[in-house]
């Protein structure tokens, strides 16, 4: 199979938009929330105990 050209790929994506699936929303929101919560917890823990 020949490798597609990037410009053609980008054009195709504009024509055929893939909507965000609920599972992608979950992946985004859960990961982001986990990052922020861990940041707060680990900063507090590191300042107190490390």
């Amino acid at each position: 199979m020949p490798e597609p050209k990037l410009s053609e790929e980008l054009k195709r994506m504009e024509e055929e938009y893939e909507p965000l699936l609920p599972v992608e929303w979950k992946l985004i929101s859960y990961t982001f929330t986990a990052g922020v919560v861990l940041l707060v917890v680990l900063v507090v823990v590191s300042r107190l105990f490390i």
Partner: peptide, 26 residues
């Protein structure tokens, strides 16, 4: 600690921007 926090925050934001704002496929 720093990398776990950084990347759990970075990845979803960039993925969201690429998907929603720029219309990239998964």
């Amino acid at each position: 600690c720093a990398i776990v926090c950084a990347y759990l925050i970075f990845w979803p934001v960039v993925y969201y921007v690429a998907r929603r704002w720029f219309g990239f496929s998964r």
